[in-house]
Each structure stands twice: as structure tokens, then as C-alpha cells.
């Protein structure tokens, strides 16, 4: 058990790395998609709507296969400047996870933006703030406050989702766990070790999200 523990621990950096890179990239995508959806112009909101529908309606594993195997079928992609990224399972994993969290979080952010009371926007207009300033100084801070609890859940889902990249040969926590299971045939033991590592990571995320919520003065619904 000790031996497998130390082997599986070696996968933690890769899991954390993939999760943090795609989460950060995903936030930008999510804000862009959310703004497109509430823009009021059909030309902007429809593509955003279908993008979110497509991503939320299909399994992540399928999206990963599509990016990793499906796109590489074409000559023009293999010759494009994106190829150095798309031929690496690592970047395919990050691209897929970024797109996925971008779609899911855009809904959270959209909900947050829509919950900002119109009175605030009108008030800041009356005070002479520009549209951009209103967004940065009024809408965004309130949105963050509203969206944070749901976004905490999304972070946990991302940690869980990152396990799928083990299927395209990346040796993160689940990848190493699977290799050990198929060698030793001790599934329960390895499950306990890998599972506790994931639970620990998610527990730490919950603590940080709770701290941030308290700092921002979010009252817990009881």
C-alpha cells in the first residue's frame, strides 16, 4: 500500500497542472461566452447558445476523442500551425477541458450577471460611469459574489474530469492507479489510495472556496 501510495502521489502535479491551466483559460472563454449570450444580438447569442448546448449535451470523453483523434484525420490540420499542440495528448486534454469548463461556467457567470439588479446599473449610469467602468466596477464584483458557490462545484467537477486524460495515455493520478491495478490486481487498495488523494484535493478546494465566500461576505443558505 505504501509503495503504490508513493507511485500515485507522483501523478498529483500533472493533475493539478492540467486542472489549473484549463480552469484559468476556461474562465476567459466562459466570460466571453456569457457576454455573447446576454449581448441581445442574435448573431452573438445564438452561436453561444448552441456551443453551450453542444458541450453540455455530449460526454467529455467523446469531446476528448473528437479533439485528439477526430481532428488529426485531416491533412490541413496536420499542416496547420496548431498541429504541434493537437498532436500532443497533453494539449488535447487541456483544450478539451478548457472548452468544457468554459461552457459550464459560462452558464454560472451568465446567471451571476443576470442577478445583478438593474438599479445598480442605472445608478452607476446616473453617476456618469462609462459602460466599461460599470461592468468592471459594479457588475463584475457582484457577479463574482453571486457565482462563487456554484463555481466551487465546477472546480471539483474539473478535478474529477481531469481523470479522463488518463485515457489518452497521460499518467496523472488515475492513469498511474489504472496501471498499478492492471499489474497487481488489487483494485480496492489502489481505489482507496487514489480516491483519498482526490478527496483530499477537493476538500482543500472546498476550504478555499469557503474562505473566499466568507471574505466576500456571502451568507450561506441554510
Amino acid at each position: 500500500m505504501y509503495e503504490s501510495f508513493f507511485k500515485i502521489v507522483e501523478g498529483i502535479p500533472l493533475t493539478l497542472q492540467v486542472v489549473s491551466i484549463s480552469t484559468i483559460l476556461g474562465i476567459f472563454l466562459a466570460v466571453a461566452v456569457a457576454l455573447m449570450r446576454i449581448s441581445g444580438s442574435k448573431l452573438m447569442s445564438l452561436p453561444a447558445y448552441y456551443f453551450v448546448y453542444l458541450i453540455r449535451g455530449t460526454p467529455l470523453l467523446l469531446q476528448l476523442y473528437f479533439v485528439y483523434y477526430g481532428l488529426s484525420q485531416f491533412e490541413f490540420i496536420r499542416e496547420s500551425i496548431l498541429w504541434p499542440l493537437l498532436k500532443e495528448p497533453y494539449w488535447c486534454g487541456i483544450i478539451t477541458l478548457t472548452i468544457s469548463t468554459g461552457a459550464y461556467s459560462s452558464e454560472i457567470i451568465r446567471g451571476g450577471i443576470l442577478s445583478v439588479s438593474k438599479n445598480y446599473i442605472e445608478a452607476s449610469g446616473a453617476l456618469g460611469l462609462s459602460k466599461a467602468k460599470t461592468f468592471m466596477l459594479v457588475t463584475l464584483p457582484i457577479t463574482v459574489r453571486q457565482a462563487l458557490p456554484a463555481y466551487g462545484n465546477e472546480l471539483i467537477l474539473m478535478v474529477k474530469a481531469s481523470s479522463l486524460i488518463s485515457i489518452v495515455t497521460l499518467m496523472e493520478i488515475t492513469g498511474i492507479a489504472r496501471t498499478i491495478i492492471s499489474k497487481t490486481y488489487a483494485p480496492v487498495e489502489i481505489f482507496l489510495v487514489a480516491g483519498s488523494i482526490y478527496l483530499a484535493i477537493n476538500f482543500i478546494i472546498v476550504i478555499f472556496v469557503n474562505l473566499a465566500e466568507r471574505r466576500l461576505g456571502i451568507e450561506k443558505a441554510t
Binding site: 481523470s163 479522463l164 488515475t174 483494485p187 480496492v188 481505489f191
Partner: peptide, 19 residues
């Protein structure tokens, strides 16, 4: 519920597949 919601689905499937 804490365990299932906190660990990857893939691990649960491997556990049952191999065990």
C-alpha cells in the same frame, strides 16, 4: 455521497471492472 461526488467516475468504474 461524499465519496461518490468527490472522486472521479472513472475510478469507480475501474474498481468495479477489476474488483
Amino acid at each position: 455521497t461524499t465519496i461518490i461526488r468527490g472522486i472521479p467516475e472513472l475510478l469507480v468504474i475501474y474498481l468495479l471492472f477489476f474488483g
